[in-house]
Design a protein around this nucleic acid. Structure first.
Lengths: 404, 404
DNA sequence: TTATTTAATTCATCCATCGAATTATATCCT
DNA sequence: AGGATATAATTCGATGGATGAATTAAATAA
């Protein structure tokens, strides 16, 4: 339980104004006041400060549609997109995606840099990231001093408050304090999180409803991840280790499929791309190629074989659907979220999993909690990840601006 | 994101003072100030108000041990136990426990009233509860007008904000708005929650550490329940349906043991008393007695047979241990709590489950999150439940006092 | 042109906290 | 014993942000 004083009152209300604009888009001062139960006087003062600081912007109302009401016209305010520039980084197996975004989370630039991430030392990793970032900034004739914040998404177990990667499947140099190292090199605030959390954030930013209640993003792709957002905040658990949904067990056996974590029976070991690829290769008598991660075209090909009617492949997806359905129903029984979003590259073949997924859900979700949780399957593209990393940096910056 | 103003500032700090005392026990004004970073002046003012209201009490320092430091002696303050009286109710299969407690959560009275709860209509249920409560109050020559709040724990799915029982294994008259009905009869604030949540609250009240981070109580008994406490607050999920841990599935199969919820493969259907009793009866060639719930002595007897070396019974407990271990490890992987408390009547035979429980945990918890969560098995007695229900009523009352 | 309506600002007032000074009450030291 | 010292608690003026009422601003309707 924390105390309150005048400073906290001020920053709370400043934060509330920025949040309102972030969630609802442009608003007039009256509406901000109504939404927050703040007096017109207070809103006037707070917004005047933000306008002076350049954080907010008055929109040109001439471009608006015809007025419906008379009286002094409302002036829409919004976060000034050009008040700051943000860098979003996403580190995955063998590649680094660098995004550039503005304060309204519009992505303005994107580049990919490839390397064998697992071969890098901690120092080489930092150099690689710095080089990639600078190279993208150059394209826009900007440099790191124009940037107000950097957000990084990494697969694995990340302690966001310290910027420390405890373990990651894409790195061998763990544990490594990447956040702190980059902050030193960039001299700019760096925020880091697990890639599933970042993606969850990206989804919640666009959903006003996600600011209250629980929204869960299940990310299926190379592995299976999850982000839990409770009342607009990412739930991280002790030392940031939460939401390892991919390693939930759907069986008691010690003989289930082997997961890359070393255990058996993990959801990931049946649903992740690497698992489906591995099993498909075995099925087809092909030895899996030397690469650790199957490329997108291989995964698409496997899906096409299923749609073509290949029984063995269909059974793989059937099984994946069942495993995922049991896993998600456990989540629903346990956390009763408002929404579960299923997303990630793996949704490319969700049509093949859907039947068994839904059957498993029907069987396993408690009758009394049915219809409480909305399940949505979302197509996925890389921009979601970009927006998530940039959103993380923006969030940090807005927090700083609120306290300023 | 909520706004702040002078009123909120005031009630926040009043609440903070009460919380501090509740968590740490008696404190001097200086220490309260230090703990909350509040100025001496603010603490002085707030505590003076509470003293005038009778909510706080200055402790007699004469009874204290010899002083170690010189200077004006600190005066310890604490919540005035006699400032209010609270009723805690616990409705389970065929019985109602009524507790009377003071504002410091000391239980001063307890009585049990039995009836076939499943045979009651909504009206009869209310009458039964009111009669029991009044009867206990009479013992102390008090009546309901002396009571500042009532807390009720019910098995099943409860929507605490509305006091509505959506479904309960101990009732047939669901859905029923018991909270509201009792509030009308008592003319006293009534708070209601799931029995596992209430028990979780009871545990967290005594643990200063539970005010931050995540503490999870797993309650094994007739069924298997769970309470999730995040940063000192019970996590309820959408419509209060969360934490149905007992109905997590530890297998994909459609042929697992039948759970009372109608599904198969629920944790409860292997670990709950009713499941062990059912399986033990089958094993021993006895047909289970006509009662729905096995009594305590039968469960103790089954445990003793296991300890005596009965292989079949031991296998039952082995299996229960494995199922519980997989279930808890899923929780650990998913939520990375600080602590998992295993409690409830079912702990009477935890010694028989422990080996397999621990093996399953070792196998299923991600190596990188081991040692992040502390697992504690707690003996259980009825007073925990009593304290939980009373704590719930106290919490509501303190909240009201903070806003006053 | 004037009345009406709604938006935004201004300014006096309020209120809880803070900081500094004061008061209260003990132990330590000579 | 009595003064010095130390710590706790209270008092009081100052501070800062929110509020409410009055004012100003900018449009439409008559």
């Amino acid at each position: 339980m924390k105390k309150a004083d005048a400073d906290i009152m001020r920053s709370t209300n400043r934060r509330a104004v920025l949040s309102a604009l972030r969630n609802n888009g442009a608003m007039a001062r009256v509406d901000i006041g109504a939404a927050l139960s703040l007096s017109p006087a207070a809103v006037s003062g707070i917004t005047a400060d933000f306008l002076a600081e350049g954080v907010l912007l008055e929109l040109d109302s001439k471009a608006e549609p015809a007025k419906l009401a008379r009286g002094r016209p409302r002036i829409l305010l919004n976060i000034n997109p050009n008040s700051a520039l943000f860098v979003g980084l996403r580190l995955t197996f063998d590649r680094l995606d660098v995004f550039l975004g503005d304060a309204l989370n519009n992505l303005v630039e994107h580049a990919v840099y490839t390397t064998d991430t697992r071969a890098l030392t901690a120092e080489q990793l930092v150099d690689f990231i710095v080089a990639g970032t600078n190279s993208l900034l150059e394209k826009r004739s900007r440099n790191i001093s124009d940037v107000a914040g950097v957000g990084i998404a990494v697969q694995g177990i990340v302690n966001e408050t310290q910027g420390r990667i405890r373990w990651s499947p894409v790195l061998t140099c763990t544990p490594v304090n990447l956040g702190e190292a980059l902050e030193r090199r960039f001299s700019v605030p760096v925020t880091m999180d697990n890639d599933a959390n970042t993606l969850a954030l990206a989804h919640c930013v666009d959903r006003p409803g996600a600011q209250t209640g629980t929204t869960i993003s299940v990310m299926i792709g190379y592995g299976v991840g999850m982000g839990i957002v409770i009342n607009g905040e990412i739930y991280r658990g002790n030392r940031g280790s939460a939401a390892e949904f991919g390693h939930m067990k759907t069986g008691l056996s010690v003989t289930g499929p082997l997961c890359r974590c070393g255990a058996r029976g993990c959801i990931e070991a049946s649903v992740g791309d690497y698992a489906i690829y591995r099993d498909a290769c075995e099925l087809l008598g092909k030895s899996p190629e030397g690469i650790v991660a199957p490329d997108e075209s291989s995964m698409v090909e496997i899906g096409e074989m299923g749609r073509g009617g290949h029984t063995g492949i269909l059974e793989l997806f059937d099984h994946a659907g069942t495993v995922l359905g049991i896993g998600v129903s456990n989540i629903v029984n346990l956390l009763a979220p408002d929404t579960v979003l299923i997303t990630g590259a793996g949704t490319r073949s969700f049509d093949l999993m859907r039947k068994n997924f839904e059957q498993a859900m029907d069987r396993a979700v408690l009758t009394s909690v049915r219809d409480i949780t909305k399940i949505e399957v979302m197509d996925w593209n890389l921009d979601f990840d970009g927006k998530g990393t940039v959103a993380m940096a923006i969030q940090h910056w807005l927090e700083e601006r609120s306290n300023a």
